[in-house]
Simulated assay, not measured.
Amino acid sequence: MTYVLPEKLKDLNPYDPVTEDFRIHLDANESFCEVPENIRQEILNAVSNVAFNRYPDPYARKLCEKAGAYYHVDPKLLTAGNGSDELISLVVPYFLDEGDTMLVAVPDFSMYWFYAPFHKIKVESLQKENSMKTSAEEILQRAKEKNAKLLIFSNPCNPTSLGIGRDDIIKIIEGTDALVIVDEAYMEFENENNSVLNEVENYDNLIVLKTCSKAFGMAAIRLGIAVTNEKLTGILHAIKAPYNVNSVTQAIGCVLFSHPEYLASCIDALKASRDELYQAVKAMEDKKTEIETVYETSTNFIFMKVKRAKEVFEALKQRGISIRFMNGYLRVTAGTKAENKEVMEALWELIQ
Score class of each variant (00 low, 15 high):
Ser89Met: 09
Thr79Val: 15
Lys341Asp: 15
Tyr71Met: 07
Gln318Pro: 00
Arg308Met: 07
Ser135Tyr: 06
Lys10Thr: 13
Tyr55Pro: 08
Asp177Glu: 15
Glu296Cys: 03
Ser48Phe: 09
Leu263Val: 12
Ile221Thr: 06
Asn53Cys: 08
Glu137Asn: 10
Ala315Ile: 02
Thr289Cys: 01
Ala346Thr: 10
Ile323Ala: 05
Ile221Ala: 05
Leu103Asp: 02
Thr19Glu: 08
Gly163Trp: 01
Ala226Cys: 04
Leu87Arg: 06
Lys231Cys: 05
Leu87Pro: 02
Pro6Ile: 12
Lys341Ala: 15
Val248Leu: 05
Ile24Leu: 11
Ser298Lys: 14
Lys288Ala: 06
Met1Thr: 14
Thr101Trp: 00
Leu126Asp: 04
Arg54Pro: 00
Pro6Ala: 09
Glu285Arg: 06
Val227His: 01
Ala105Asp: 09
Asp11His: 13
Lys341Asn: 14
Thr211Glu: 03
Ala185Lys: 04
Leu126Arg: 01
Leu150Phe: 09
Asp168Ala: 14
Ser89Phe: 07
Phe32Met: 10
Ala215Lys: 03
Lys66Leu: 00
Phe153Ala: 07
Met111Tyr: 09
Ser258Val: 07
Lys133Tyr: 14
Ile207Asp: 05
Tyr55Asp: 12
Asn155Val: 11
Lys76Ala: 13
Leu223Pro: 05
Phe109Pro: 00
Pro107His: 11
Leu150Ile: 12
Tyr70Asn: 10
Glu65Lys: 06
Gln141Ala: 15
Gly83Met: 06
Val245Asp: 03
Ser273Phe: 01
Phe325Gly: 08
Ala67Lys: 02
Ile207Cys: 04
Pro17Ala: 07
Gly224Val: 09
Asn158Tyr: 15
Ile291Gln: 00
Thr101Lys: 05
Lys271Ile: 12
Ala116Val: 13
Met187Ser: 07
Glu230Pro: 02
Phe109Cys: 13
Ser213Pro: 00
Ser135Thr: 15
Ile302Tyr: 06
Met218Thr: 04
Asn194Val: 07
Pro14Thr: 12
Glu199Ile: 02
Leu26Ala: 12
Lys288Val: 09
Lys282Gln: 12
Thr228Ser: 11
Val47Pro: 00
Leu270Trp: 01
Tyr3Val: 15
Lys287Arg: 13
Asn194Thr: 06
Glu345Trp: 01
Ile152Tyr: 02
Thr299Pro: 02
Arg319Asn: 05
Glu42Phe: 06
Lys287Gly: 05
Ser135Val: 11
Ala185Trp: 00
Val4Asp: 01
Lys231Val: 14
Glu37Ala: 13
Arg61Glu: 14
His259Pro: 02
